[in-house]
Design a protein around this nucleic acid. Structure first.
Lengths: 204, 204
DNA sequence: GTTAGCATGTAAGGAGTTACATGATTTT
DNA sequence: AAAATCATGTAACTCCTTACATGCTAAC
């Protein structure tokens, strides 16, 4: 009653973001979602199609008419969706909401994937929010560590060490991104395609 | 109908594992679960207590009688649970099941946390299974990459690069763990408390 | 004596999966 | 013409969270 839904926010944001670039049908959307959702996650159709229906009902997306003139003869069944004007507006609103909700693991990834459509101001607020979220976790993990370490065997300790290290690594990554945002004067261009970020060498 | 539940397998395994070490009550269990579940995850009581009830119903855990003689006077309400004989058995069965289910993110963490109670054989099968799971992901990500890279802007590309790098890093971590398991002759001792694994310096 | 934290629990519902059901289109 | 893959969709169910409800105990 109080929190009022936040309706499948992550998936909806990802779908709106992908449709912002070009109209797509469900099957193709699902394939592309893995690239935008973090960690190679895959969404099932049982999740995607109800989500699309909901977006249509709220007027944020609509069925795109088939581009070619050959209307009913060729490819039927395939339903291509596109963003409506309100959908574009709503996407910007969602993307610009740099609150705590945007700092959790999954949500952050999706926001990040669409940074190209956000202002530098929004990007910085989200990156910094994410960073303090992670630092909170590190604090909590380190604070409770005395008691925990006493009962930890070698494997539990190793698991926690690995978790801490991964989180610290992500904080450093965020630091680099924030630095880049602050120093780079221009909005990111599409031309290069290769990542302009430091540490982009896949260190091996 | 077909798959037949696999009842909250991760949480149940974690609870059984923690109770394997010592009897605990729900409140305390929840605190410790964060250490054993991956990535600082926290479980809600609405999840934990029904889980405990289910474990009692199936006879794997039971209420421990209060240790002291002062039965009804002192601390009431606090219900301490302990593993039954069947519970111990069941835990070993679950832990030893080194199938694909043990290779996913959350499940792997919990299995790993209780490696101290598993045989080296089981540990190796799980570590190797996890590794090939991750390598599958890397393959998939690299295979579909040509098409994906063309439409990726700088941020999407950076997100994917970071995901790939993290996964590659975990593979290297697994390689070290496997190497350690193969060379170290003894079962891990509880004495040292500090992790005996390579790379244990929290490199900064 | 009242606030803060310990401790247990339930009801409602959100978010997503699996498994099923169906049909069109392309490849072999 | 059979097999594979593209494509859409639903029903049932699982897992988990949020919000609520309750009471005990320790500290101030």
């Amino acid at each position: 009653m109080a929190t009022q839904s936040r309706r499948a926010a992550v998936l909806e944001l990802a779908v709106l973001g992908l449709l912002h670039e070009q109209p797509l049908h469900g099957y193709e959307l699902r394939k592309r979602l893995s690239g935008v959702l973090g960690a190679f996650r895959v969404v099932s159709y049982g999740s995607l199609y109800p989500c699309l229906r909901g977006l249509v009902e709220r007027g944020w997306i609509g069925e795109a008419p088939p581009a070619s003139s050959s209307a009913s003869t060729s490819k039927r069944a395939r339903i291509t969706y596109e963003l409506t004007a309100e959908g574009k507006e709503h996407f910007q609103t969602l993307l610009g909401q740099a609150g705590p909700a945007a700092w959790e693991d999954d949500t952050f990834d999706v926001h990040f994937a669409f940074f190209g459509r956000a202002s530098r101001d929004v990007r910085l607020r989200i990156l910094e929010g994410r960073r303090s979220r992670l630092e909170e976790r590190l604090d909590a993990a380190r604070t409770g560590s005395r008691e925990r370490r006493e009962r930890a065997d070698a494997y539990t300790a190793e698991l926690q060490r690995h978790g801490l290290e991964s989180t610290e690594r992500e904080v450093r990554w965020l630091n680099e991104l924030i630095e880049t945002e602050l120093t780079a004067p221009a909005e990111p261009t599409d031309s290069g395609a290769r990542s302009p970020y430091p540490g982009a060498t896949t260190a091996n």
